[in-house]
Amino acid sequence: MTKYELRIIKSKVISVILTFITIVSTFPFLLVLYFIMKNGISVINWEFLTSLPKPVGEPGGGILNAIIGTAILVTIALILSVPFGILAGIYLAERSETKIAFISRLVSEILQGVPSIVIGIIAYLWVVKPIGYFSALSGGVALGIIMLPLVIKSTEEILKLIPHELKEASLALGVPYYKTILKVMIPAGLSGILTGVLTGIARIAGETAPLLFTAFGNPFLSFNILKPISALPLLIFTYAISPYENWWAKAWGASCILVFFVLSLNIITRLISTRR
């Protein structure tokens, strides 16, 4: 065997090993998906999606309260984090050299690393304590704080990617600075910012820990943001640790829906960012 042939064989071996490892690394995800589908899909039907939970022992019932709850919590989080996040992101991109930018970038990065349960505690101290009881608002605040650094980061990054020439083109037409940011920079970076927001939603939709002592959970349908509210991850948590087999099945079903939701958000995000 010549040296040349040996080299080709080595190269092929490495290539095969790499391919194998890549396939193996997708296994955990595929397994998770498999188990959730296997146990959850049979539970899901129209009634499951549109009715409230029934007391233990009674057949039927659904998770409408948790779906609505998650929707309300995410909305509150969006209202709180998106405006602040985008504005802060613009500042960081536009004034990237200043001290304030340096500090807030650092703080934002640290915030991203804070365990979510700690953020739950902070929301408890800030919102639940002063009001006096658990509420959707406090849950939304907790989720909003988790989402904030994601929005800041993605806005900053995308605005930095927009060619400098575009801003100059606008300014050279005599367009004031604020209009340039609003009408040129933001639209140009919109898909990127949207991607950041969607990634953020995917992240917070599955958060359980910060909701434990903020949103708390609620077996009834609630639209009042000052009252406790249910959420998909909370419901899964409660049902999964319960002793009832009937509830375990419901937890699988809810997991299934949550996973689908997050998965589709990720796919949409991917579509938006590749279309760009």
């Binding site: 100059e168 083109a169 606008s170 050279a172 005599g174 140009a188």
Partner: peptide
């Protein structure tokens, strides 16, 4: 006002930069 100046004196840059949106 610089905005007024820039409307009276236009500019074209090195790289073509039409607004992509």
């Amino acid at each position: 006002d610089p905005m007024l100046v820039r409307r009276k004196i236009g500019m074209v840059f090195q790289k073509p930069n039409p607004f992509p949106t």
